[in-house]
Simulated scan of single mutants.
Amino acid sequence: MVDESKYPTRIAPYGLRIPPDLKVRIQTAADANSRTMHSEILAALEEKFPAQPQLSNVESSLVLLKFALLRDNPDRAKTLMALRELEEDLKDLKKHIYRGLKAED
């Protein structure tokens, strides 16, 4: 089953001119991978331009890491210090990202 959130059907088509020799190579790869040319092109683009991790995922991972380390690590003082540093780095990263987004507006 196709993941509709990944490939929504309401995306406007994009016309792309492909040189004949490249088209043959794409079709050959698609056949070898049991895919359509469209799917082969999307797979190549996803590989070349992977999705950037979402900040919310990083924050969720940090929370899970915190619980795991505090539960399993006997040296809680060092663990807490490392987590605080990580949290500060994450805050700095957020500020940097938000500044970048505002600059683009």
Score class of each variant (00 low, 15 high):
residue 23 K to M: 14
residue 30 A to C: 04
residue 15 G to M: 09
residue 39 S to H: 06
residue 23 K to W: 13
residue 74 P to Q: 10
residue 34 S to L: 15
residue 1 M to K: 09
residue 72 D to E: 15
residue 73 N to C: 15
residue 8 P to W: 05
residue 58 V to H: 10
residue 44 A to C: 12
residue 26 I to E: 03
residue 75 D to P: 03
residue 67 F to T: 07
residue 88 E to F: 11
residue 9 T to R: 13
residue 7 Y to M: 07
residue 11 I to E: 14
residue 16 L to W: 07
residue 63 V to L: 13
residue 103 A to Y: 09
residue 73 N to Q: 09
residue 15 G to V: 03
residue 92 D to T: 07
residue 90 L to R: 08
residue 76 R to D: 05
residue 67 F to D: 11
residue 78 K to T: 09
residue 75 D to E: 14
residue 51 A to E: 13
residue 55 L to D: 02
residue 4 E to F: 15
residue 68 A to F: 15
residue 66 K to V: 04
residue 57 N to R: 08
residue 42 L to C: 07
residue 43 A to H: 09
residue 13 P to Y: 03
residue 6 K to H: 08
residue 77 A to M: 06
residue 64 L to C: 03
residue 68 A to D: 13
residue 61 S to G: 11
residue 82 A to C: 05
residue 84 R to M: 06
residue 99 R to N: 14
residue 1 M to V: 03
residue 83 L to F: 02
residue 10 R to W: 14
residue 91 K to A: 09
residue 57 N to P: 01
residue 75 D to T: 04
residue 38 H to I: 06
residue 10 R to F: 14
residue 27 Q to L: 13
residue 22 L to C: 04
residue 57 N to F: 12
residue 101 L to H: 04
residue 48 K to S: 05
residue 81 M to A: 12
residue 50 P to Q: 01
residue 19 P to N: 08
residue 29 A to I: 02
residue 72 D to Y: 14
residue 76 R to K: 14
residue 37 M to L: 08
residue 78 K to N: 12
residue 91 K to P: 01
residue 94 K to F: 02
residue 64 L to W: 09
residue 61 S to W: 14
residue 70 L to F: 13
residue 55 L to I: 10
residue 86 L to P: 03
residue 80 L to K: 06
residue 42 L to S: 01
residue 101 L to C: 01
residue 11 I to P: 04
residue 2 V to W: 12
residue 62 L to N: 05
residue 9 T to N: 12
residue 11 I to G: 06
residue 47 E to T: 10
residue 53 P to C: 05
residue 31 D to M: 09
residue 93 L to Q: 04
residue 22 L to Y: 13
residue 93 L to I: 05
residue 11 I to S: 09
residue 52 Q to V: 06
residue 53 P to I: 10
residue 62 L to F: 15
residue 86 L to I: 08
residue 7 Y to G: 01
residue 44 A to T: 07
residue 37 M to G: 02
residue 51 A to M: 08
residue 48 K to A: 14
residue 6 K to V: 04
residue 50 P to H: 05
residue 31 D to P: 00
residue 61 S to E: 15
residue 74 P to V: 01
residue 70 L to K: 03
residue 81 M to P: 00
residue 90 L to H: 09
residue 41 I to Q: 00
residue 4 E to D: 13
residue 88 E to G: 07
residue 69 L to A: 14
residue 62 L to R: 04
residue 101 L to Y: 06
residue 98 Y to V: 08
residue 42 L to A: 04
residue 4 E to V: 12
residue 104 E to S: 09
